[in-house]
């Protein structure tokens, strides 16, 4: 059957009419509140580590380690997806979301074995973030080097 572009456009208009709209305002507010709370927890740990006499650099590293642990732990006990359901980007963007994106496929694919299951699938979602994150930082680093 030949594609009928006009018919497809007409249909798209009909279909769009019945598509429920996402609750944009609610989603934005929830993302702000939950994302903010996660950042508050991070700040709490930063202050805590600084008060224990760690340097700023060490305290920053320790906060990342703590937050990744919390994200992974909450994923493991099946809570993080419930937070994500109403928080949206609020729980995806922070480093806890990154931990969630690695732990959740690892849990799910361990039945296919630890090598080609858990280990291989672990980075299906996080992998692209790492690839493009590292690539972007290299490009920016080069630009900075030559413009300096």
């Amino acid at each position: 059957m030949e594609r009928d572009v006009k018919k497809e456009q007409e249909y798209k208009n009909i279909a769009q009419k019945y598509e429920p709209k996402p609750a944009l305002l609610k989603n934005v507010v929830m993302a702000f509140v939950v994302g903010g709370l996660i950042s508050d927890i991070g700040q709490f740990f930063l202050n805590f580590y600084l008060s224990r006499g760690y340097s700023m650099q060490d305290a920053n590293t320790l906060v990342s380690i703590t937050m990744v642990f919390l994200g992974a732990f909450l994923t493991g006990i099946g809570v993080y997806d419930d937070i994500g359901k109403f928080a949206g980007a609020g729980s995806i963007v922070p480093i806890t979301g990154f931990a969630n994106s690695i732990v959740s496929p690892a849990m799910e694919f361990k039945r296919e074995g630890f090598v080609f299951g858990a280990a291989a699938k672990m980075f299906t979602i996080a992998g692209p973030v790492i690839v493009y994150g590292v690539s972007t930082s290299i490009i920016i680093g080069l630009i900075y080097y030559f413009l300096k």
């Binding site: 997806d81 994500g84 729980s91 799910e108």
Partner: peptide
């Protein structure tokens, strides 16, 4: 879900459709 979409414990929102 695991064949067509995302891991179950992935914290994402499902669209209304």
């Amino acid at each position: 879900e695991r064949q067509f979409r995302y891991p179950l414990e992935q914290g994402i929102q499902r669209p209304f459709t």
